[in-house]
């Protein structure tokens, strides 16, 4: 067991973990942060995407011990303190960017990361920006629209109908 200290969605935690514990399992099973999910075992699907010190990572491909001393944000921590949805969450709802919703937490976290780096991506840049996340329901088109809409809102422009 190794001791780790992490901040997750704004709260501090100290825990002993087995080194082999994946970050996603720590989040789900130790902290009860079940909003972040596991979809594969080869780092392809991106369902487990969280932000580790501000960067999107696949939490199934990081050991919890590696997150020691880090700040982690999950899908459960991106809404405002007043519960107001993050613009990307709102846009996924508005543009019907989800169906079963299983890929959605990872998709939203990857999209936020993309928009941080590229605030007004083209359609191609969006599609390539979320290439690390698989969705089986939507065919991606409404996810792309959602990211476009969120980009508009976050840059202060009027969210356009795609």
């Amino acid at each position: 067991m190794t001791s780790i200290n992490v901040r997750v969605d704004g709260a501090s935690y100290s825990d002993d973990v087995e080194p082999r514990t994946l970050l996603v399992h720590y989040l789900r099973e130790t902290l009860g942060k079940v909003g972040t999910v596991v979809g594969c075992d080869t780092s392809n699907c991106g369902a487990c995407t969280v932000h580790l010190d501000g960067e999107a990572v696949k939490s199934c491909t990081v050991f919890a011990v590696q997150a020691d001393g880090s700040e982690i944000t999950t899908i459960e921590g991106i809404a405002g303190g007043d519960g107001a949805l993050h613009p990307v969450q709102k846009a996924f709802h508005e543009m019907h960017g989800l169906q079963c919703g299983y890929c959605t937490p990872g998709m939203i976290m990857a999209s936020i990361d993309l928009l941080k780096e590229n605030p007004s991506p083209s359609e191609t840049e969006i599609r390539e920006g979320i290439e690390g996340n698989l969705c089986r329901c939507t065919g991606y088109q409404n996810i792309v629209r959602a990211v476009q809409q969120a980009a508009g809102e976050m840059s202060g422009a009027t969210g356009g109908q795609a």
């Binding site: 079940v34 909003g35 972040t36 999950t74 899908i75 949805l85 996924f92 919703g101």
Partner: peptide
Amino acid sequence: DARLITGR
């Protein structure tokens, strides 16, 4: 969507 986009 409310529960799915928030991880609840």
